[in-house]
Amino acid sequence: MKKILHLTIFLAVVAAVAGGALAFANDLTTPIIEKNQLAAEKESLKILYPEASDFKSVALKGDSKTIQKIFQVDDTTYIFKMQVAGYKDGTVFMVAINTEGDLLKYHAISNGDTSGIGTKVTEDAFKASLEGKKANEPLDTISGATVSSKPVVEGIHEAAAYVDEYLK
């Protein structure tokens, strides 16, 4: 009977100490990590609109998994931060769409697919092929990298639909 007690107390104490240390580290670091993330986000927003002073974040309606965040630059243009699947880790990108549905700007933040193929979604050729078009019209994917580029195009269509539905 003493043995069982000894084992229970010992495992409980070790788990509590490990958990406590982890919780302490977490409480210490979460505010700093969030601050870093916001700074990084602001930086990538600045790439799209260097002259804009502030980006008002808009509450997200609907339950789409691809749209992560929405920022408002001025009363007609919104920036969507999107995360889509791909071949391996998929793509995180930002796209600016105005209330008329024109695709003003596109910027890919990261792509976790096969380097050289999937990462083409981050290159300027793909960016040029998108900007200036209507966000809801069929957009061309990259030949040879459809597994990575098709979800990005579908993501843009979803953002366009979101604009028509909620932001018009």
């Binding site: 084992l7 490990a18 958990g19």
Partner: peptide, 12 residues
């Protein structure tokens, strides 16, 4: 800490 104590105790 409470969750870990309970879990550790139960498993122990």
């Amino acid at each position: 800490i409470i969750v870990m104590i309970i879990l550790g105790a139960v498993l122990g």
